[in-house]
């Protein structure tokens, strides 16, 4: 709890509240879940109920909601009434931003707080874009995967603007932590929705290069592998024919590191009609224990290696193997349509 809350004067002893009769929580005649509150929290809520029931939209009521929120930032009703008061008083919303920032510095995983922040930002309009982006940046300093903050940031970009530096910001976050799936997701969000980037087709080449570099740094990192696959979404032909993809698979397969994702991507290539080079076949051979060297189909051999390397998901890889023949046919069919 706050140091300023340590010195709290009970509401019952504050002259400005002397005209209010507090209203205790009504848990019904037969409380199923009777609750014992801390005395201070209980008193604050008793006064809150009184002003709420009287619909008192005053400065002191606003101050009271601040106190109640400091005790418990999860209470929807308190937040809602706070907004009613703010509107009625036509309050300076910049102060409100500060209020939220102070709260977020203690608990940034509260739904109501973020919802309230958005409400304020929406009222302020595009002038708020910069401060909102900065606000989420500060949150990410401590928790780079904060789901609420990411959701807020995306909303800001789409509704208030500020796209210009967003791809560079993704670079920065991934530099800090290349495993940050939220940053990879944001990267995809930017390249597919940034109004000035011209969409995936235009940016694919440079993004593929970027992603391959990231993968080669940490081949066990799930996120860039999925991102790479996403770059070829709706363009299977480019996926299968781009030699950068198969070369990446080869590099990882021959580097003696965890290569589950490389094998999985190779499998995707094969089922979409990719013809493996001799180098790739050789790299694959070296991963198969000799006693298992029976299946002649390359894709089936990939599945076999995956079953051995990833025993927790053995059923998934077995299923991939069992559905091979139909997929290869589909893949070839799809290719010939293009």
């Amino acid at each position: 709890m706050d140091s300023d809350e340590d010195e709290r004067i009970p509401l019952s002893q504050r002259p400005e509240w002397s005209d209010i009769t507090p209203v205790p929580q009504d848990d019904g005649p037969n409380p199923v879940v009777p609750i014992a509150y801390s005395e201070e929290f209980a008193e604050t809520m008793d006064y809150f109920r009184a002003v709420y029931l009287a619909d008192e939209r005053s400065h002191r009521a606003l101050q009271l909601t601040s106190e109640a929120i400091h005790f418990n930032a999860g209470n929807y009703t308190v937040w809602q009434f706070r907004r009613v008061i703010l509107e009625a008083l036509n309050a300076d919303l910049h102060d409100e931003l500060e209020f939220v920032e102070h709260l977020a510095s203690k608990n940034s995983k509260n739904y109501q707080l973020w919802h309230h922040r958005r409400w304020v930002a929406e009222k302020l309009g595009s002038e708020a874009a910069g401060r909102e982006l900065e606000f989420t940046k500060n949150i990410f300093l401590n928790d780079a995967k904060n789901y609420h903050a990411w959701s807020h940031r995306q909303w800001v970009l789409q509704n208030l603007g500020g796209w210009e530096d967003e791809l560079a910001y993704c670079d920065k976050l991934l530099e800090d932590d290349i495993f940050n799936n939220s940053a990879w997701n944001q990267r995809y969000f930017v390249i597919t929705r940034h109004p000035g980037l011209g969409g995936i087709e235009g940016i694919r080449d440079s993004e593929v290069n970027y992603t391959i570099k990231a993968i080669l740094t940490k081949p066990e990192n799930e996120s860039p592998w999925r991102y790479l696959r996403g770059l070829y979404k709706n363009n299977m032909k480019a996926f299968v024919t781009d030699s950068k993809v198969s070369t990446l698979c080869l590099k990882v397969l021959t580097s003696k590191v965890n290569c589950v994702f490389a094998l999985s991507l190779l499998l995707d290539l094969l089922v979409h009609g990719f013809e493996p080079t001799q180098d790739l076949k050789n790299a694959l051979e070296s991963l198969i224990p000799e006693s298992n060297n029976l299946d002649s189909d390359v894709a089936a051999r990939v599945c076999l290696v995956l079953e051995i390397m990833d025993p927790m998901r053995v059923n998934y890889w077995r299923w991939r193997k069992s559905s091979l023949s139909s997929h290869v046919e589909d893949g070839v069919k799809n290719l010939s349509v293009h």
Binding site: S151, N181, N185, Y188, T192, Y227, R229, K233
Partner: peptide, 12 residues
């Protein structure tokens, strides 16, 4: 792109 869903379009 991973087949999953987020809270709003484009969310992780």
């Amino acid at each position: 792109l991973d087949g999953g869903f987020g809270c709003t379009p484009g969310a992780e």
